[in-house]
Design a protein around this nucleic acid. Structure first.
Length: 190
DNA sequence: CACAAGATTCCG
DNA sequence: GGAATCTTGTGC
């Protein structure tokens, strides 16, 4: 088992996104409860990418994306759901990986409660308060890698819910994994 | 200050 | 297919 740290996140989002499939994300909540799940679906957002929040430059909202890789970037979408990202690349770069789905223990009461970017934040109890935190045990929010997913089991597709940058195959997920989020439309799959 | 859009989810 | 719901960025 290895703790994922800044060194690892200091690489491009297109490299980090597939590499953290199979990693376990942990959040120790303010009430002391330990929440966790295995990452099974991610998306990469790159600096020159029209779908990336940081592509239009530094704003108050996107400031965490321009920090050194390893920071948590949380934003509210549609006024209702939080989405959680891991900032990647060197300081000033402006890129991140969106966590889209977690696999929960098969015997859990609600096994699919983390299948979708909004749902997994609700499950892990991630809110705006976690925006700008670094992933590390001291901040009660961290990632551990204890398995590598076979390259043949990693599928790529177009990203979900975006209106620009549709040509990039920057969504990554574990093949045949039932916890991957359900998409309204069939994204193009490679 | 007004307004439109948004990396979603759930219901009918 | 469409509504819910509200923050953020932009433009006048």
């Amino acid at each position: 088992m290895s703790l994922l740290t800044n060194d690892f996140f200091n690489q491009d989002a297109t490299l980090v996104a597939p590499a953290i499939l199979g990693a376990q994300i942990f959040h120790k909540t303010s009430s002391g409860q330990l929440k966790s799940g295995i990452i099974v679906e991610t998306e990469a957002y790159m600096p020159q990418d029209p779908a990336c929040h940081a592509a239009k430059g530094l704003t108050k909202r996107t400031a965490p994306m321009f920090e050194e890789g390893g920071m948590c970037y949380v934003y509210l979408i549609y006024g209702m759901y939080y989405c959680m990202n891991i900032v990647t690349g060197p300081k000033g770069s402006g890129q991140a990986v969106l966590i889209r789905a977690l696999e929960l223990p098969h015997n859990s009461i609600t096994p699919f409660a983390a299948s979708g970017p909004g749902k997994l934040c609700r499950y892990l109890e991630i809110t705006k308060e976690h925006n700008g935190l670094r992933f590390c045990k001291e901040n009660s929010l961290w990632l551990e890698l204890s398995q590598t997913i076979d390259i043949n089991l990693i599928k790529k597709s177009t990203r979900i819910g975006i209106s620009q940058g549709k040509e990039n195959l920057w969504r990554y997920y574990i093949k045949n994994n039932q916890y991957v989020s359900k998409t309204k439309r069939n994204a193009f799959v490679q």
